[in-house]
């Protein structure tokens, strides 16, 4: 497990036998998009399946959406499945309104996720 501190966001990478979970926490905007791209590329290079857990992410902008779309394409080119899981609140609405959730999201979250 690796933990890294950013100014407005953090990420955690859990490498498990059946895939890697990248957990994003906080607010990511244009300023963090390049670093996010590197984090996702590293995870994609080391696994056949990458779940990006958004449960604790509270803000994304269009630059971050672009990064997620590009990472998904990069993963697909390498036969890696990258899925966005557990988006909530505003992050979920922004992903839904842009059609990203439909394409990059996995199975719907349970109706009553634990708080």
């Amino acid at each position: 497990m690796t933990v890294e501190q950013e100014t407005t966001w953090q990420w955690r990478c859990d490498i498990e036998p059946d895939g890697t979970v990248v957990t994003l926490l906080g607010e990511i905007d244009m300023a963090g998009a390049d670093h996010l791209r590197d984090v996702l590329r590293k995870a994609i290079a080391q696994a056949t399946r990458v779940d990006v857990d958004l449960a604790q992410l509270t803000f994304i902008d269009s630059a971050v959406i672009n990064t997620l779309v590009a990472a998904h394409k990069h993963a697909a080119d390498l036969d890696v499945r990258l899925t966005l899981v557990n988006p909530t609140g505003h992050v979920r609405r922004v992903l839904a309104v842009t059609g990203i959730l439909h394409t990059l999201g996995g199975t719907p979250s349970p109706p009553d996720p634990p708080a």
Partner: peptide, 19 residues
Amino acid sequence: RLPTPEEAGHRGLWLAQRL
């Protein structure tokens, strides 16, 4: 305009007017 979910780029102004 809104790019397709596969396209990168150019969602900023679309989001601004949508929201």
